[in-house]
Structure formats: structure tokens, C-alpha cells
Design a protein around this nucleic acid. Sequence first.
DNA 1: AGAGCGATGGCCT
DNA 2: GGCCATCGCTCTA
Length: 184
Amino acid sequence: MEELLQDAEVAAKALLGYRLIHDSPKGRTAGIIVETEAYTADDEASHTFRGQTKRNSVMFGPAGHAYIYFTYGMHHCFNIVTGSEGDGQGVLIRALEPVEGLELMHERRGVDKVLDLTNGPAKLVEAMGITPQDSGADVLSGSLRVEPDNKPKTIVSAKRVGISRAKHLKRRFYIKGNSFVSKA
DNA sequence: AGAGCGATGGCCT
DNA sequence: GGCCATCGCTCTA
């Protein structure tokens, strides 16, 4: 998937409309990627800004691999590594529109509304059954993977969410009008 | 609808 | 010791 070899900002836009699929022992869940954020090593808000560490090392590896990190003591978030090996860049997947395995998602999330299933980075990780063990895995093949689906009509660029540094950069992208976007 | 805040743990300074 | 690429509850309106 050559889009992933490009800069995170290009890849973040290209990934909108892609389908994220996870085949787990409990069944398949899938959703359309509707919101992303780009992070590069020259960006103060990126985990890779201060160089390679044990935690962020997969982001310095080859593109197309999953980088899953633990945050706020209770949540995990899912990224896809982009660019060239050694760059330390990637795309955070912030929201999905659920399309398959909604019942399993409800079971995992314990929420009533479909809208609350996957409209946030940690929510989608929980709904899809993604675990830290998936970190480093190739997302072009395997049980957790992305595939091209419908190209979005209109993409909106906006400021990122939940960061304190480099706030002004418009490196969040989402599909205009989609109700599963975490923050319009 | 929107602001405030607690939960909870690993990582960095 | 402080800070988080968060979520969901509670309070005010």
C-alpha cells in the first residue's frame, strides 16, 4: 500500500474511507476509518519527537505496522506507521464508522448507543478487540488489517485533540458530515 | 450542551 | 513528580 510510504499527513488523508478489519476468536469486527491524525518526528506533540525509546520503537520501523500505546492509565490507542523506515512517523486512527460485528462491539464496550461504539481512539481499540499484543504487527495482512473501501467525498482538516504542544497544526483529518467523528 | 474532574499506570525529566 | 495522542460521570444551565 504505497500511500503508507508517504508522509504521515498524506497517509492520514489517504486512509480516510479505508476499512479496518479485525478477526478475533470471538468473531469479526470492521469499520470505516472516518477520522485520523498525523504525527511526525519533527512535531513536538509526537511520541517520536525526542527520539527512539523502547516505547515508541515500532514507529521507527517500516510503514504499515501497528503502533499501539497505553495512555492515561487505562486506555490504548492505535496508529499505523508511515513513511520510510527510521522516520518515526505515523497516523493515529481516531474514529471508525462500525460496519461489521456490531453486537460484538456492544459486548466489548458495554454502551447502548451505536454512536458511542467507536467515536474516539481508545473506544475503537476496545470495540475492535485490539490489544497491546497487536503492536508491531503488519496491518496489510493478518488478522488485524486495513483495506481500501469507499473514497470519502470531502475531507476536513482541523486541529488535533488532547495535546498541549503544537496545538495550532491542522493535522487532524475527518470525513465531512460523518456522525462518528469524535469532535467536529 | 458544555465544563470539570477522577480513574489509573507507564514513561520521561 | 508530573504529565499524558482518553473516557465517562456529574454538575450547572
